[in-house]
Design a protein around this nucleic acid. Structure first.
Lengths: 197, 197, 197, 197
DNA sequence: GATGAATGAGTGTTCATTCAT
DNA sequence: CATGAATGAACACTCATTCAT
């Protein structure tokens, strides 16, 4: 009797991760428009053909990369989240988490910004993505119920709570701002004043 | 002998304007990545070669288009601006002007968003662009001096004053929001609460 | 007033013809499977991109080439056709015309054979192609009416009248046959015996 | 220790046969040009690498498949062949056998037609292939000797005897013909008239 | 024997740009 | 000024084949 013990080559996770890193790096350096499959492959030190083993096509690569980053972002933002902390403290934690992730992973973040403004964005099920961020919405909801936060739509709240931080921590858009603790404090105070009752 | 009638200048301008409109339309429909020179030329009903009479190259076309839109945006935002109105009223006027321009020219606005997040953005002298918006900064400055507005950097103030509005009125990013007067009022209230002392 | 006297470059018929010749030559030498667009372009001394000025895509090129050859074949077969000649003489004329065209343009003919056996064949409106050969069908019809030719379907008649000649004159399929007058005579006698009453 | 049961040989043959079937099916459906090794492997439910265990390379696969089909065709044509039957009856038997094989195995037959018109054809030792059909040539030879069949070259005879049947029973080439017994009879009569003295 | 991973070289096609008119 | 023709280089993607297991 012949038994085959995983007798074939196995997909290399390091390779897949190298491809994603290369994608992000290139998009950050030369932009979405110029980031071709062959350039990405070269940056990742693989053959263009190899890329198609891991991803169905370019769109799949770009969308998967986007989802991967969004996933990491949500994990970072929600890390050390304490359900019982006061609402302002929870939001402040989200805020600083976001700020640090974006500052330290600016290329990742800029990738998502370029992606969100491209037509590829329509290929993403945004509801699924939003689900990763539900704890944030729950905090906001609790704040509304406790009459601490203004009773307006989530879109409006989150646009004031998180889009400013994205802007401020995006190196491409905000060149004169340094991520010092004073800036973070100041900016969060504005965000809080915006949404609090 | 060739005689140039005045009408010919008009015809030329019409052509140039057709090229810009085609650029915006295409970028809005198929995205920055897929918008090639020949497609733009076809959309504008001119030869690809003609395009190179009006613009040095593709980059020049894209940058010029960006600047043109930014110019129109600043004109719209600043229209009916009354230097002597109370600060809150001035900012509210800017706010609603911006909201209406973006809502009604979404394709133009989305062009600028794609552009700003692309490396082409680095070819623009952003200081020059900002100059068109100086009246806004002057109002903010006056507000700071009159202790009406928080004394934080302009970047922080404007990121709360205008970035939210851009998001809320951008159809691609904000699909569940309708541009009704209630939404505008609500959102402006948040913006104002954010920056006011 | 400005008048433009055909002020643009004009499509080069020599170039188009070079492309068709290159297509036929390559298909004949290395086969349908291996005849890539870039090889055809190189053979025709043009850029691959140029090919797409004259043809929508590869399929269009291959189909057009097929139709072009079929057109020439029909013209050759029908040349010097005398409506009033006896039926056998007319068919003999068609026969020898076909034999000579195929013998002298073997690469052209082999192209059509490869094409007809490929899936590209389904892109052709074969009824239109057949129309070029209607005089042949009319002769056969007249022969049937005059009780000279067997009253069977045209498909059967033409398959005996013309497919054998194609085979005999196709160098790839028939290597031991020489196109001497004896062979032509012999073969035509068989064809005639097949269809005559 | 590896022990080879007899059943394993059978399994292998099944695999080899699956590969050939997949090759024929694909070539028939999408054509020679588009039939890649990996598509064939997928269709046969094996790895592309497996294919290279059974065949040296793609050419070997295609040629072997051709020879296999030719072998089956010759067996079918010669089945129930009675050496002592009258010459016309023998040929009629060949004829109907061929007709039925081609009709019922159209994909197999069309494979050979595409193959014969491709440059791969040159890799085949056609004399060897012809040997499978020697009984046919012997019958024709006997007919010539008995002054029943015209004394012309075998090429000419067989081109009238078999090429028409191939065309009539090839679905791709002959769409308006149905394989009814009347058609077979009619067509055979023409073939016979062609070659008989 | 059998596999899926891996790849350099190729595919058909479009690109931004320039040319001749 | 304006054009369609023309192109080398690049595009996204697939190829036939080999590799390590």
């Amino acid at each position: 009797m012949i038994v085959y013990f995983r007798s074939m080559r196995i997909k290399d996770e390091a390779k897949q991760s190298a491809i994603i890193d290369a994608t992000v790096k290139l998009v950050n350096e030369i932009g979405f428009v110029s980031s071709s499959v062959s350039k990405i492959a070269k940056e990742a030190n693989v053959s263009p053909a190899t890329l198609y083993i891991y991803y169905k096509n370019k769109e799949d690569l770009l969308v998967s990369t986007y989802l991967e980053i969004k996933q990491r972002l949500s994990e970072e933002i929600l890390s050390e989240f304490n359900q019982n902390a006061p609402i302002r403290d929870s939001l402040y934690k989200f805020w600083t988490n976001a700020f640090h992730f974006i500052s330290q992973n600016n290329s990742y973040f800029q990738y998502t910004e370029q992606f969100a403004n491209s037509p590829y964005s329509e290929k993403v099920n945004h509801e699924d993505v939003e689900k990763s961020f539900t704890p944030i919405y729950e905090v906001l909801q609790k704040g509304i119920e406790q009459k601490i936060i203004k009773n307006v739509s989530f879109e409006i709240l989150s646009v004031f709570m998180f889009y400013p931080i994205m802007n401020l921590s995006n190196a491409r858009l905000c060149k004169n701002i340094t991520a010092d603790s004073k800036t973070i404090e100041d900016a969060f105070q504005l965000a809080w004043d915006a949404i609090k009752l």
